[in-house]
């Protein structure tokens, strides 16, 4: 983790517009801004894998930049 980067605050599962499960990831940006982004199944699993976790509950505290890894 580095200073000045977005951190995952929370991650919960929710149904998406298409009826598939999505991961709602809440981020805190370095300027204090908080936003929530919905990830589809493939992207959500990719994030979990990049973070080395097997549960959404383990995502809080992880750096958001990990979503870029392996893309």
């Amino acid at each position: 983790m580095t200073d000045g980067e977005a951190i995952i605050l929370d991650a919960v599962v929710a149904p998406g517009h298409d009826g598939a499960a999505e991961l709602l990831v809440t981020l805190r940006h370095p300027n204090g801004g908080v936003e929530t982004v919905a990830l589809d199944g493939e992207t959500g699993f990719h994030l979990m894998k990049s973070c080395g976790v097997s549960s959404a509950a383990e995502l809080p505290g992880q750096p958001w930049r990990r979503i870029l890894e392996g893309l």
Binding site: P15, A21, L23, A56
Partner: peptide, 26 residues
């Protein structure tokens, strides 16, 4: 309301709170 559907044919984030299920279904 929005329903959520899945089968075990494809990995679903429905199981994202269950680490052992995630490891198997991926």
């Amino acid at each position: 309301p929005i329903d959520l559907s899945f089968s075990l044919l494809r990995p679903s984030l429905f199981f994202a709170r269950l680490p052992r299920w995630v490891r198997v279904l991926r």
